[in-house]
Structures are given as C-alpha cells and as structure tokens.
Design a protein around this nucleic acid. Structure first.
Length: 157
DNA sequence: GCCAACGTTGGC
DNA sequence: GCCAACGTTGGC
C-alpha cells in the first residue's frame, strides 16, 4: 500500500523546518489548522508514513525547504477547546471535537530550497496546487510525480 | 505594506 | 439559501 504525498505550509517566523528538526524527537503536532478542507485531508486521508513537502510561506523566498513524514493518524486538536489558545474555537469540545491534527517528523534535508518561483517555471509542476493563483490551502495533496520532481530538484544544486 | 483571492459569518 | 461584509492568507 503506497503512501500518499502532501504539502504543508508554515510561516518560518512562526515554525520553520529547522524548528521541526530541532524539536524533541524531531517532531511536532500540527495544531491550529482551522480550514475544513485541510482538516478533512488530515483526518480522512493522511496515514502514518505519508511524506510531506515542508513549505515556507509568507517569507522572503517562499518554497519547499525539506521533507517530513506523517508520524500519527489524525486526532483531536486540543488547542481548539483551550480558551487561552489563539486557536480556540468555542464550538469544539473534547466530546465533540471539530478540529484535528497529525504529528509530523523531520525526515530529510534538501540540498537546497526549491522556491515557489522555480516550481512555477517548471512545466512538469504546472498542475501542482501550490503554484495555482490564489491557492491558500495550508495542507494540500501532492501527486507522487510532483513530489519526486520537487525532491529531485532540491537534491540537485 | 499592499492588495487580490479566498473562506466564513450573519442578516435577511 | 443568497450574498454583502469582513477577516485572513500569502505573494509580491
């Protein structure tokens, strides 16, 4: 059973790929996703062992900066019922959680980042969601072909 | 910092 | 259920 591939966005000023790598056990729980499509991907389709293009958004050079791995199935995002959290949602409770998250773990460094601009200039990647205009989804499915192409680009200087 | 493109909210 | 208003995302 082949695993799936994903792209997950993070603002490096908030949580970067290096932050992931320097976390205890090189992993973290991906809390704070408050978009239904992104939630559904995590809750319904992500499996342990799936591979993730870790993407830096809202920064000087947006792009894919490393490879991570999904290390748990989805489970309720406890920050959603923590009234002190900035991700608090009063409609989510422990008995009826509305939001979910997975854990991801550092998997592999790239030799170099693959910028959004470079992906846009690569014909093979033309249909990737992340290069589409106005695409804001923070958790996106990626085809095996696109995943491997981006990884290969990042491994060749 | 600007602003276009989205997603969500809420009045009706 | 429509849709205007609002808030957010994220490239530039």
């Amino acid at each position: 059973m082949a695993g799936k591939y994903w792209l997950m966005k993070s603002e490096p000023g908030v949580f970067s790929f290096d932050d992931l790598k320097n976390s205890p056990n090189k992993g973290t729980h991906w809390d704070g996703v408050r978009n239904y499509r992104a939630r559904n991907f995590m809750r319904d389709e992500m499996k342990k062992g799936d591979l993730v293009l870790f993407y830096h958004s809202n920064c000087e050079v947006p792009g894919v900066v490393g490879i991570a791995e999904v290390s748990t199935e989805a489970y309720p995002d406890h920050t959603s019922w923590d009234s002190k959290s900035k991700y608090f949602d009063p409609k989510s409770t422990p008995d009826n959680p509305r939001w979910f998250m997975v854990d991801i773990t550092w998997k592999e460094d790239l030799q170099r980042p693959v910028s959004l601009q470079e992906m846009k200039e690569t014909p093979v990647l033309r249909d990737m969601l992340v290069v589409q205009r106005g695409q804001r989804l923070s958790v996106q499915p990626v085809s095996k072909e696109h995943f491997e192409k981006v990884r290969k680009m990042g491994m060749n200087r």
